[in-house]
Design a protein around this nucleic acid. Sequence first.
DNA 1: GTCTTTTTGTTGCGAATTGCAACTATTGAA
DNA 2: TTCAATAGTTGCAATTCGCAACAAAAAGAC
Lengths: 165, 165
Amino acid sequence: MLERSLTYHLSSITEDGIGSANRIFETRFGWSVRELRVLRLVRSTPGVTFTALSASTKFDRSLTSRILSSLIKAQLIERTNSPEDARVFTLKTTPKGKALCDQADPLTVELEALMLKPLPDKEREVFLAAIDRVKAWVQQGYIEEIGRRYPEMNTGSLGKRKPKL
Amino acid sequence: MLERSLTYHLSSITEDGIGSANRIFETRFGWSVRELRVLRLVRSTPGVTFTALSASTKFDRSLTSRILSSLIKAQLIERTNSPEDARVFTLKTTPKGKALCDQADPLTVELEALMLKPLPDKEREVFLAAIDRVKAWVQQGYIEEIGRRYPEMNTGSLGKRKPKL
DNA sequence: GTCTTTTTGTTGCGAATTGCAACTATTGAA
DNA sequence: TTCAATAGTTGCAATTCGCAACAAAAAGAC
């Protein structure tokens, strides 16, 4: 047993959790967890632009673009070119996309409930609340703090564009 | 914001956490988080066999084998052929491997503490305890329960060998 | 106006990852 | 002895996915 290793434990949980879910979702709905996640992100933030969406998904713009394309091609998401800026488009779920979400949601809820089964109600709440807080922190101050403490971090790319030519 | 999505939040945290840690560890020690994880697993379970180790790491035996090879080649891990069974070998860390662990440990501890900074002591404990319980559950009963509820799960491979030729 | 710079999103390409299945070697069972 | 099962390795190849180049449009400079 690994004495301490938060990230090990967490990734272990997510891998097991997502791994099994992935197969169920794929066979039932034909879409992976990741793709459905993009769909849901669009649903929960209708009118979102590609750039904003890309920031949420955390993966490369190219990957976001590709996943998005497949969802649009499948008519789960509708793409509307912005009238103000021709480079920009906004996204929203189509009825078909919403229907798929609605169909998938219960399963998501069920799986999550099952994952948290060993936790009594009280602890579950604390757990979920803690996750939210840690997540917010890790995305904000944490990264900065890391950069401050460990200068070796400040090279390389992460969501950055090529600075110059 | 994704209303519910436990695995999304968790993977988001782990990605940010591991992502930043990865660079620090790699530049400081020349080994990735994943490789160090294998090293630590061996340290915490000296005498472990390849198969058992492979089960812990969760990745394919082939990948486990390759990572292990590099650690052995670097003389961080020592491989001892089992006298009883010539197919089997057991693993333990070398002094050099231990030294590397010892060197890396404080950083791990520091990074984890930093990640959990937003949680007050009490909640932190509950959080960590919850993680342990959920992890154990997800690895045991959860998987089985999933297999029971969702028969589509029972195809495909996960740590299984090819059944027949 | 035009010239340059910046931003948005897409895509070609190739490197890296890694899972699968075939393979060797050994053990055990019939 | 032969057949089956198990331990670990490796070749192969499909996939993934990030980088960087790109086109198109907007914004700014002058």
